[in-house]
Amino acid sequence: MELWHFILLIFEFFLLLAWFYILWIIISDLFSDRAVSGWAKALWIVFVIFFPFLGSLVYLIARGGGMAERRAAQVQAAQSQFNDYIRQQAGTGSASELLDAKKLLDDGTITQAEFDRIKARVVG
């Protein structure tokens, strides 16, 4: 095998992977859009599979702007869920944490200012 044939083979393989990636993006966008009916989704899938280049190009032209908006909404929802989870896990302190801090204050391990900061965090 000559060097140029090998380079061409690598380039074709790259194009094949790029095509599968675009197909994956189109199909995932199509099925995540609740505004499109089942029949319309089926027609888009048939169009993209039987006329791959034309179908993908038409899909990206016709629905490309909506793809970005739907993806941004998904990212925003995921970020909101993550933030809610972090707030829930961080939460406010518990009564046992306040009792432990009081014990440390009585033992002289922490100062009154440190105890007040812990108390403020636990209470509110």
Results as ranks from 00 to 15, higher is better:
Met1Lys: 01
Glu2Trp: 02
Leu3Trp: 03
Trp4Gly: 01
Trp4Leu: 15
Ile7Pro: 00
Leu9Phe: 15
Leu9Ser: 11
Leu9Gln: 07
Phe13Val: 09
Phe13Trp: 05
Trp19Met: 12
Phe20Glu: 05
Tyr21His: 08
Ile22Met: 14
Trp24Met: 06
Ile27Glu: 06
Leu30Gly: 04
Phe31Cys: 02
Phe31Pro: 01
Ala35Trp: 02
Ala35Tyr: 05
Val36Cys: 04
Ser37Val: 11
Ala40Val: 13
Leu43Trp: 11
Phe47Gly: 12
Phe47Ala: 13
Ile49Gly: 01
Phe50Tyr: 08
Phe51Asn: 09
Phe51Ile: 04
Pro52Thr: 10
Phe53Tyr: 13
Leu54Met: 07
Gly55Arg: 04
Ser56Thr: 07
Leu57Trp: 15
Leu57Gln: 08
Tyr59Ser: 07
Tyr59Ile: 08
Tyr59Asp: 07
Leu60Ser: 01
Ile61Trp: 15
Ala62Phe: 15
Ala62Pro: 03
Ala68Ser: 14
Ala68Phe: 14
Arg70Lys: 14
Arg70Thr: 10
Ala73Lys: 13
Val75Ile: 15
Ala77Cys: 00
Ser80Asp: 10
Ser80Val: 07
Ser80Tyr: 05
Phe82Arg: 15
Asn83Gly: 02
Asp84His: 12
Asp84Ile: 03
Asp84Trp: 10
Asp84Glu: 15
Tyr85Gln: 09
Tyr85Thr: 13
Tyr85Val: 05
Ile86His: 07
Ile86Tyr: 06
Arg87Asn: 15
Gln89Ser: 03
Gln89Gly: 01
Ala90Asn: 09
Gly93Pro: 05
Gly93Asn: 06
Ser94Phe: 03
Ser96Pro: 00
Glu97Tyr: 01
Glu97Val: 02
Asp100Phe: 04
Ala101Lys: 07
Leu104Tyr: 05
Leu105Cys: 06
Gly108Ala: 02
Gly108Phe: 02
Asp116Pro: 01
Ile118Asp: 03
Lys119His: 13
Ala120Leu: 09
Val122Phe: 03
Gly124Pro: 02
Gly124Asn: 14
Gly124Glu: 13
